[in-house]
């Protein structure tokens, strides 16, 4: 017996023909996709007024800008140079603390709001379908409108200061958390719920004793993640006058206080990294807690 393949075997020929046709169709589809993609890119380039000439002519300004924001630090007078670079450290730290508080208070309010609404939005617990629909659309609205737009409107309604920032973050957080929480609730084990319903528990009792114990650690983990995002969000709230360190940053950028820009940015980045690290540790601790019990 030989393993040689008869090239003229009709079955093999038919197979090869089929393969060629299928591949041809696939190639055509890919080509069509590529053409659509290129047309989209071209349209987008027109829309965003891309101008390579302008970019090349001005590109040197970008490294120049970055270099200009760099402080002069000499080894001999390191302490004095640092002190000069961070001349406004007291005010900045105060604003940074305010930023963190804005993020924290906004997160707490938003998480509480999301918690209250998520049960009505979940497919397995929401009682009436119109209420579920309304809750879902409301949450969608809250998270689709950017928080800075809310902040702009709130600044006019509540006046300048951190309060509009807090409310803007709270509303956006409520929208995002409500959706995530309701997804968690939809994935719970329904047996405890059935058990409690069988004993005659009311709606609130069912949620308290059958649902909350199952979802609490997931909720806390999402809330921590959201806090981290909100710290970033709160750091730019000051751009529209809604409190926090953003107001000093935008002033420094607009007025070309170069070294201030780098000093404040560095403060923000370090804070965000520390918070990232801290919340990650906390989340891991929470998850391991869940696995143990």
């Amino acid at each position: 017996m030989t393993l040689a393949i008869d090239r003229n075997d009709p079955t093999i020929l038919a197979h090869a023909e089929l393969y060629r046709r299928e591949m041809g169709a696939k190639r055509l589809r890919t080509l069509l996709g590529a053409v659509i993609f290129i047309v989209c890119v071209w349209l987008a380039a027109l829309g965003s007024e891309v101008d390579p000439g302008k970019f090349i002519a001005n590109a040197w300004r970008f490294p120049k800008y970055i270099l200009e924001t760099m402080p002069t630090l000499r080894l001999q007078s390191f302490g004095a140079d640092m002190a000069e670079w961070y001349w406004g450290i007291k005010g900045w730290l105060k604003l940074l603390w305010q930023t963190l508080l804005i993020a924290y208070v906004g997160t707490i309010l938003g998480v509480v709001g999301g918690f209250l609404l998520c049960f009505a939005a979940a497919a397995n617990l929401g009682k009436t379908s119109w209420l579920r629909f309304a809750t879902r659309r409301f949450l969608e609205f809250c998270r689709t409108v950017p928080e800075i737009v809310f902040a702009l409107i709130f600044v006019i309604a509540f006046g300048l200061g951190p309060l509009p920032g807090v409310l803007a973050i709270a509303i956006h957080t409520m929208g995002a958390m409500g959706k995530l929480f309701s997804e968690v609730v939809e994935n719970i084990d329904m047996k405890p719920v059935d058990g409690l319903t069988a004993t005659g528990a009311g709606w609130w009792q069912t949620i308290r004793f059958a649902v909350v114990p199952q979802v609490l650690s997931n909720f806390a983990s999402y809330a921590l993640l959201r806090f981290e995002i909100n710290v970033r969000g709160a750091s730019i709230m000051g751009f529209v006058g809604a409190g926090g360190i953003g107001q000093d940053l935008i002033e420094a950028i607009r007025k070309f206080y170069f070294t201030d820009v780098s000093a404040i940015l560095l403060l923000i980045i370090v804070t965000v990294m520390l918070i990232d690290y801290g919340t990650e540790r906390l989340r891991h601790a929470l998850l391991s807690l869940e696995h143990r019990s």
């Binding site: 829309g47 965003s48 007024e49 891309v50 101008d51 302008k54 970019f55 001005n58 590109a59 300004r61 970008f62 800008y65 800075i148 970033r232 750091s235 730019i236 751009f239 940053l249 935008i250 950028i253 607009r254 940015l265 923000i268 980045i269 965000v272 990294m273």
Partner: peptide, 22 residues
């Protein structure tokens, strides 16, 4: 870690106002 809005401010300084900076 730097927000797009901050990058936009910096790029506006480089290439001028307009969607290209965005």
């Amino acid at each position: 870690g730097v927000d797009p809005l901050i990058w936009a401010l910096i790029w506006v300084n480089v290439v001028g106002l307009g969607p290209f900076a965005g």
